[in-house]
Design a protein around this nucleic acid. Structure first.
Lengths: 248, 248
DNA sequence: ACAAAAGTGTTTACTCTACACCCATGG
DNA sequence: CCATGGGTGTAGAGTAAACACTTTTGT
């Protein structure tokens, strides 16, 4: 964000007034409910204006000395206790008038949102109910009208999630240390939808890639043949990084 | 960027001080010099502190009432006159201390950079020399040490450019209305490097996709058989949108 | 024995790659 | 007539999609 070079706007006595910003971080937090095969989104109830009484994406304003990423992790940590997660920056929404608080009377402060998207493990994501604010997982398909432009951010986040799942090993950030290929397949089906691939083809492709390490252990869950437990081998994945690798 | 829900920070009398930001927009502007087969990057010379005397990516601070995108287009328009271009948001760099102006004495103002990347047509990009600021195209490989974290932003932009070229029809935003398949191939080779694909395979794949419309016209440039001129058919491309289509 | 889930294999159709080769033009 | 770039075709390897089949468990 170097200053402009033209004197007309770079000069301290510039005639063009710069905007003053508060910077917010809003998180699209996804989780896969493997019991019911549903993709969940975390939303929080707003109690203050604007949009009091609306659900919204969990967010916060960036504090002095705090990086954007740190703010994103803070929001997450304030809402849920979780060990394993994947988080990355999504997009920055910053048009004027996206936030009703930007009235000219309010000192002309603009509100900008650096959105992030996160994927957390559903089973060990413990919601932090503070007794005041509502907080809930919604199945993606049933998310209601949200505050601000948060539905738009959510749509954007979902697109990114699907892309990431196809090209990157983020599923392993959210699966247990050892898992069955069925677990992995269910996760993919839940996010990408039925019919993205046949189980046996999915299985063959992934095993051929060679970064799934068979632990030798088996697990039995009710009826059916016991499944082998696998572990993600990050070292074996290294050479595949940056390649247009497709999981689907 | 909804306000936090926890009282400790959402309350007007919050004990946690929020950061105040100036928001900058920095553009990674690429162009393909088809004469010499070089990928070029636009840089401008800084005359003011910090980093006076360094080359930097063209940038500006966002003004009151101005959207991020508008600011990005303004920077571009101030540096070059160009008709055809592609522009999109890249990433937001916002850690504390990325800008030396963020001294505690300076009212604790943070500087955040919403970087964008653009691809413009080299032939009709006319640099605007204002007599004061230096401005130049550098071949990507020879870009010097830049101000701030701009080399990092440039690296990020180059990665995005390559990805975009593989998945999206941005090449046609920067090619003339009609072009030969050789023109298109050269553009790809220049950006993606030799050996991304053989010409005849590239050709066959693209023609099969069906969105290149043969105009029937031919062009002759020196020796060699005259080439057919093609036009990008946006309507025919529509159904391919959102599909993981690969040009390479 | 049977259902359920895991795991293997096979067939068929494409797609990718690396070439070889023909075509039309300028010098 | 030959160098130059445009354009076509093809063999062989590899990949993808659909689906049939076997294995191992719980009930």
């Amino acid at each position: 964000m170097s200053a402009k070079l033209h004197r007309t706007s770079d000069h301290p006595l510039s005639p063009v007034p710069l905007a003053d910003f508060k910077v917010g971080v809003d998180n699209v937090i996804f989780s896969v409910d493997t019991q019911q095969n549903r993709l969940m989104v975390l939303v929080v109830m707003r109690h203050d204006e604007p949009f009091a009484g609306y659900w919204s994406l969990p967010g916060t304003l960036v504090r002095q000395g705090e990086s954007l990423e740190a703010a994103a992790y803070r929001v997450l940590a304030e809402k849920i206790r979780v060990n394993t997660l994947y988080l990355e920056q999504l997009y920055t929404f910053g048009g004027p008038d996206r936030d009703p608080r930007e009235s000219p009377q309010a000192f002309n402060v603009r509100y900008l949102s650096v959105s992030h998207f996160a994927l957390v493990r559903f089973e060990d994501a413990e919601l932090i109910a503070d007794g005041v604010s509502g907080i809930a997982w919604y199945p993606l398909a049933q998310v209601p009208q949200l505050a601000f432009d948060h539905n738009e951010i959510l749509t954007y986040g979902y697109r990114r999630l699907r892309n990431k799942l196809e090209y990157s090993p983020i599923a392993f950030d959210v699966l247990p240390e050892v898992f069955t290929l069925g677990d992995l397949y269910q996760l993919y089906v839940t996010v990408l939808g039925e019919g993205f691939s046949d189980y046996s083809n999915f299985r063959a492709r992934l095993l051929k890639l060679g970064f799934l390490q068979d632990t030798g252990q088996k697990t039995s869950r009710g009826a059916g043949r016991p499944a082998s437990l696998y572990r993600f081998d990050a070292a074996a994945f290294e050479p595949l990084k940056e390649k247009a690798m497709v999981f689907i």
